[in-house]
Design a protein around this nucleic acid. Sequence first.
DNA 1: CGCACACTTGAGTAATGTCAAAGAGTGTGG
DNA 2: CCACACTCTTTGACATTACTCAAGTGTGCG
Lengths: 222, 222
Amino acid sequence: MLSFCSAVGDHDLARLNAIVLSEDFAARTVLLVEGDEAESLFNITAGTVKIYKLLADGRQQITGFLFPGDFVGLATAERYAYSAEAVTDVTWCRFPRRKLERLLTDVPALERRLLGIASNELAAAQEQMLLLGRKTAREKLASFLLMLSRRMERAGRAPSPIALPMTRADIGDYLGLTLETVSRVFSQFRRDRRIAFRRGGSVELLDPTALATIAEGASEGL
Amino acid sequence: MLSFCSAVGDHDLARLNAIVLSEDFAARTVLLVEGDEAESLFNITAGTVKIYKLLADGRQQITGFLFPGDFVGLATAERYAYSAEAVTDVTWCRFPRRKLERLLTDVPALERRLLGIASNELAAAQEQMLLLGRKTAREKLASFLLMLSRRMERAGRAPSPIALPMTRADIGDYLGLTLETVSRVFSQFRRDRRIAFRRGGSVELLDPTALATIAEGASEGL
DNA sequence: CGCACACTTGAGTAATGTCAAAGAGTGTGG
DNA sequence: CCACACTCTTTGACATTACTCAAGTGTGCG
């Protein structure tokens, strides 16, 4: 929100606040369903959200884990391109689309901000395609841990330990692996003293440099 | 280009044309390198372009095949997020970024158009993540053929036969497979009379319905 | 305290990758 | 014009990674 609102002047900020609505949800609540009419855009205030797509037989691909400050439902299309579920308890702000569009027309700087956000997401999506299509299980998990770590840093927090509010199954569905493979690779990293699990489901990165080497595919002798 | 320019009035269209520069390239020419300064945006006029990311050891993930009308280098970031190479001979229009930005400021409708394009690409990227992370080789190839077919239709052409200007290796690098697996699945589809190869490297979809069923993961008894 | 639920670990399997060789299509120079 | 050389493709045999199925171990919550 901060980065979004900072493009708005005082007067327009008041208008932005006027159209915003705060909502709370318990963990595991389904927040959006792919194909539903996209009548609002949301910005996460607290908690973790997963966005995902499903195949007919139930196979799931999580396309992103979203944290406070991230947008859900970013699309100019009529319908949501993905489903969303609360991983933890979640609070978000709702921007009714029609009101938001009027505001965007009046404040072009907001539109440019949204374009910037969308093109960043596009770059992240391409990075994820590289991961899904070409990386091994080890490389995927190392990349995943580092991505979360960098995200913590960008949010102004320490790069380690990292909170892992999602299950092994969710991590697998994000990386294109099974939960068993995720567990096995984590165990391997733990045995090799590259990570350590802490209480409350968080992970400490004991050797970020080694993880970065693995993540980039130089996994030969490691 | 048409869809982009149609958001511009006559006077502004003249301005748009004034900043545009047409360029030609032979097949296999490297057009952009990931990490290079993003000083221009491009719109393809003729030919096929692949955009891709590389790992240190040479593994490649193609994140998109782009055709006439598509944009290359769409990013607000300082640097290109991907490399690009001409699959066939290519012609494109260059929009110097600084001049384009001035134009975008003057014509907010253009910016909204770009936001729409970016959010469509985001939806396509998520569909591709589902494919890469969760679909089998058969499902991937069926999805790929249908995607190209739908793209032909949207461009106002017949949905079949489809031109396949890229190599099996490129298709594999797009779908997260090896070229051998691509070839084997194509052979299987051909034996099952779902597709037929025509002269000049194009494919006819003999049974689009069956392919659609396979693509969506209902591959049980097929 | 005990019941879920998530996680870990093991054994065997299946899908896809790797290595290899031969065939088909295309362009070029003798 | 044909033969050679090149690249791309197909197909086969085998290897490997990650998946499936299964059992057992925490761990937190009611």
